[in-house]
């Protein structure tokens, strides 16, 4: 399925991810139109990092992203609902480690 539904006169769509700080995972910010990767990066900078949001950017062509579909929601995600033991909350954390947080 093509995710880029724009007409041929429009620039391609790019998904924008920004890193809020050193060591933090990248977060999805939104999307921009741009003719190529360099301009996508600049447009992302001008659209999504004007208010100190991040220190690094990724841009990815939208049609390169493979997404799960709404029908996948049940089989993909529901099985995790009743498996609380997958969370690390049943271990006691030593005080020294807690302090370092």
């Amino acid at each position: 399925m093509s995710t880029n539904l724009s007409t041929s006169t429009e620039w391609p769509l790019w998904e924008v991810f920004y890193q809020p700080n050193d060591g933090k995972p990248f977060e999805h910010a939104g999307s921009v139109h741009a003719p190529d990767a360099e301009m996508a990066l600049q447009n992302a900078r001008d659209t999504y990092t004007r208010r100190n949001e991040g220190i690094s950017l990724w841009v990815v062509p939208t049609d390169q992203i493979t997404a799960s579909s709404p029908e996948d929601r049940g089989p993909f995600f529901d099985p995790a609902n009743d498996k609380a033991y997958r969370h690390p909350q049943f271990y006691s954390v030593p005080r020294a480690v807690k302090k370092r947080k």
């Binding site: 139109h33 741009a34 447009n43 001008d46």
Partner: peptide
């Protein structure tokens, strides 16, 4: 000419 460039020029 484009929304993104509009922002870039205003910036």
């Amino acid at each position: 000419p484009e929304l993104e460039e509009d922002l870039a020029l205003a910036n």
